[in-house]
């Protein structure tokens, strides 16, 4: 409860900061919605031509985009530092969070808001509402799917970027991991062979963000539910654990001046 109040105060400050540049903020939100919409035309064209691929049709695809965009949007808007954590660590900017009496990881993540994320979130919700699965129980499943997506997005990226504690600058690696995760999450994993599917459930958990939640909203199954819940919990706890472990090795940018 204490932490909830604290997070709310951080979000308030984020919104105040966004409102300092409100014209840019609203432009970003609207353009991000258009951007996603135009990108989705690809799937409209595709399913117009091929109808269905292994049980996937345009409606399932709208679910997938709805979940992935909402999950990404929530991450970006409310926990915006989850894509710049490596820079924060390497740049010694954890000092600030470490000198305040709050959980460091939570504090870092929620201290930045990416305005365009709101555009993704609105688009995602819209895509879900138009998908044809907008029923009471469909909505519940959608919410669970989005929750899993947020956990996986954030957990996965925190793990990759926490490697900075050991390896130094991993900004390039993190960017690659992010783009791989995002790209794969926007395609149904039924397209791929068994090995790739396994990779998409583990090392690059993109299937847990897109395919599995979308199939779960389409039709309830215990298998998907368990995969989603256990996947999110594993990634969430692993990310906290690895981050805390790394924190002991944090160097606060003190030792980086040395170049021989």
């Amino acid at each position: 409860m204490r932490q909830v109040k604290f997070i709310l105060a951080l979000w308030k400050a984020n919104i105040q900061a966004a409102m300092e540049f409100r014209a840019a903020f609203f432009t970003q939100v609207i353009f991000m919605m258009i951007n996603n919409g135009v990108y989705f035309i690809f799937w409209v064209l595709y399913f117009d031509k091929f109808n269905a691929v292994r049980g996937w049709d345009i409606n399932t695809m709208m679910l997938l985009f709805g979940i992935a965009a909402s999950a990404w949007g929530i991450g970006a808007f409310f926990f915006g530092n989850f894509i710049s954590l490596a820079e924060v660590i390497v740049g010694g900017r954890l000092d600030y969070y470490l000198s305040l009496p709050r959980p460091v990881l939570l504090h870092v993540l929620a201290s930045k808001s990416i305005g365009s994320g709101m555009g993704d979130l609105i688009y995602g919700i819209g895509s879900f509402m138009l998908s044809g699965y907008f029923t009471p129980d469909g909505t519940l499943r959608f919410l669970l799917g989005v929750f899993a997506g947020v956990c996986i997005f954030i957990g996965f990226l925190v793990i990759v970027q926490s490697l900075s504690f050991w390896l130094g600058n991993t900004v390039a690696l993190s960017q690659f991991a992010l783009s791989a995760l995002l790209t794969f999450s926007l395609y149904p994993s039924v397209l791929f062979d068994a090995t790739t599917k396994f990779i998409l459930l583990t090392i690059i958990p993109a299937a847990l963000i897109g395919t599995i939640p979308a199939e779960f909203v389409r039709e309830f199954s215990w298998q998907s539910a368990i995969q989603m819940v256990s996947g999110s919990l594993v990634f969430l706890f692993l990310s906290i654990f690895i981050f805390k472990l790394g924190l002991k090795r944090y160097e606060s940018g003190s030792a980086i001046q040395v170049e021989v």
Binding site: D95, L98, S99, K248, Y250, S252, S254
Partner: peptide, 9 residues
């Protein structure tokens, strides 16, 4: 100072 504030171990 960073050790004394808990920033560094």
């Amino acid at each position: 100072i960073k050790i004394l504030t808990g920033i560094l171990h």
